[in-house]
């Protein structure tokens, strides 16, 4: 920025209110910076996020999470306060078109064979957390135990937040990278991240991974979930192939 005052007589009694139009230059400069950011921001952000992700994931204070890098989890809840549940009162109901409807406690789930995945978590709004550790029970294992009837075509997930729902086709639900997650980032899933039990559907955008999972109902057709009816999101939420986005797939 240049020094102002090129057309000013400093001796003038009113010199205080004259001078170069620096204010306008600043406004235009800020606007140009913003425009450049919009065009190049994606690349800049990717580099920043990649560079800082290890620090952010290991930061015990969580303060670096306040930086807008687009690589930390953001908390989305569609309702008011969500009740807190733990091992003493958590239950997962499995029902619908199955031969053996059942209700599982957290301990039941912990005793089943556990699968660990290390995959990115990609939100449809753009943020992506690299290399998150997920541990839990394969949804396929739970379904196998419950025994879907021949009419079964899809799964409908419910949440104990009282409002959120999601869906998968039966074929999608049987994939080996679809977990009923009990651990995330190496610890039990915290309440804010949807604990004690949440879905993790690795190949799809985050809205497909129901938080505060309370029920798994087998249905004869796909029932579009909360954001698919409230927000026009795609029902088949494949990362990089839906919702008009081209993010790198997670796999």
């Amino acid at each position: 920025m240049s020094r102002g005052g090129d057309d000013v007589n400093a001796d003038d009694a009113n010199a205080h209110e004259d001078g170069a139009p620096v204010g306008r230059r600043i406004v235009l400069g800020v606007a140009a910076l913003g425009a450049a950011g919009i065009v190049t921001g994606r690349t800049v952000q990717d580099h920043l996020a990649r560079w800082l992700a290890p620090i952010q994931n290991a930061d015990p204070t969580g303060l670096t999470g306040l930086l807008p890098l687009g690589a930390t989890f953001r908390y989305y809840s569609v309702t008011g306060s969500v009740p807190t549940k733990d091992a003493s009162d958590y239950t997962l109901e499995i029902g619908g078109l199955v031969d053996h409807p059942t209700t599982l406690t957290l301990a039941d789930l912990q005793q089943m064979p556990q699968t660990t995945l290390v995959r990115d978590f990609q939100c449809v709004t753009g943020w992506r957390v690299p290399e998150v550790h997920w541990t839990g029970v394969r949804l396929a294992d739970l379904l196998e135990t419950a025994g879907p009837t021949p009419e079964a075509k899809a799964i409908s997930f419910g949440s104990f937040d009282g409002a959120y729902t999601e869906s998968l086709t039966l074929e999608q639900a049987l994939r080996s990278d679809v977990l009923v997650a009990l651990q995330m980032l190496g610890k039990p899933v915290t309440h804010d991240h949807g604990g004690p039990v949440r879905m993790y559907v690795a190949p799809m955008y985050g809205y497909k991974s129901t938080k505060w999972l309370s029920s798994i109902e087998v249905t004869d057709q796909v029932v579009p979930g909360y954001w698919e009816t409230q927000g026009n999101y795609d029902v088949d939420g494949w990362i990089g192939e839906s919702n008009g986005r081209d993010d790198e797939p997670v796999g």
Partner: peptide, 8 residues
């Protein structure tokens, strides 16, 4: 908008 020498 205007910055005079006094402002600097």
């Amino acid at each position: 908008n205007r910055f005079s020498p006094t402002d600097w």
